[in-house]
Design a binder for these strands. Structure first.
Lengths: 189, 189
DNA sequence: TATTTTGTTCATTTTTTATTGAACAAAATA
DNA sequence: TATTTTGTTCAATAAAAAATGAACAAAATA
């Protein structure tokens, strides 16, 4: 039997989370933690993921028992990432939110918003480093530094190649990989 | 001219970082931040990445001006990840460290150590959720919850497919992707 | 064996990050 | 226009994470 130490289904809010919702939120809290986002963001997304119908701002604060400030900021970020969408409900003045369920779109939003900018600023930094190496006095150091810089450039390039492949795999595409990845996928095109 | 506001090359340690080293460390500090590791870990790896020769524990604390505790913990983590290796130096009692320069091995270590465990525990959690849903009373809720659970399962599956593909791309492999990824790569096998 | 060298552990302190909630703005309704 | 509803912002607070360094262990040397 689940739901230990809470006889009725609700402890604080008028409509507390059910067991399967709680466990599902936990998954999302961990997942967002993995990519460096605050737990409240995982909770909000998780709640919307579980919901049968679009939720309002107030329903989110109430069911999660977190502050209006956290919900406002969390929803703002999630909208930026394309992870939640506004859903217009005719009868109500309030905004209603729903979770984006396509993992491909989720990942695309994350990559575009959080990963790509880092990659681009990294590229700029690499260019700047070349100038700094030019200023070195010792030739031995210079040569060594250039070698390392070249490694950084290769890494940068490979990371760029990675992004479309990730989106393809998450989108359900099959890829023919090289001999090291026999397990991954066998279907061609 | 670089190196502003520090007339000699050194401010604190006997051998402070040169400009290109500082900028390179910055790249690694940002990179490790992106995956949720402390800045000291990025600094240590970055320093070893830049170094022409294996460095000792003391050289690392001194050049980075960080505590022995941080260096010890940072090196421990980096060794776990396979991102730095011990390098035996006959003349010296001290341990000498070098940076792993293969991005594929770096990523493999990270995936194995940080990503895979999350994926596995996620899988376990998903199985547990099925039990919780069974306990729901309403049939409508039950059906909806099973649908969401099925989505989680698909995501889990796709994430697993992703890992070998990532390693292949970073290892320099070419992949034939589907029509959405024309740009990524054209070479077959 | 006593001493030094080398590196680790972990309780404490510092720093960073997230959360809160009161004050605020914008828009709808009365 | 006055009032209510809805949501945002941001300074203050709380919580979490990282860094420190002294105490410790392990191993080499004297």
């Amino acid at each position: 039997m689940s739901n230990p130490d809470q006889s009725p289904v609700s402890v604080d809010g008028p409509s507390a989370l059910s067991d399967w919702e709680t466990s599902t939120l936990e998954i999302f809290v961990r997942a967002v933690g993995l990519v460096g986002l605050p737990r409240s963001v995982g909770e909000i997304y998780g709640l919307l993921f579980c919901a049968m119908a679009p939720l309002t701002f107030d329903e989110i604060t109430e069911r999660l028992s977190i502050s209006r400030g956290s919900v406002s900021q969390g929803l703002k970020l999630l909208r930026q990432l394309g992870a939640v969408k506004l859903h217009y409900v005719p009868s109500s003045r309030k905004d209603h939110y729903i979770a984006e369920l396509s993992i491909k779109r989720l990942m695309r939003g994350f990559v575009k918003d959080q990963f790509k900018p880092h990659l681009d600023s990294g590229q700029a930094r690499i260019e700047a480093i070349e100038q700094l190496i030019d200023g070195e006095t010792s030739d031995a150091v210079k040569n060594h530094a250039y070698k390392r810089l070249s490694t950084l450039r290769v890494w940068q390039q490979r990371m760029r190649k990675l992004m479309p492949v990730i989106l393809a795999v998450l989108g359900g595409a099959s890829v023919l990989t090289n001999s090291e990845d026999k397990e991954a996928d066998r279907q061609i095109i």
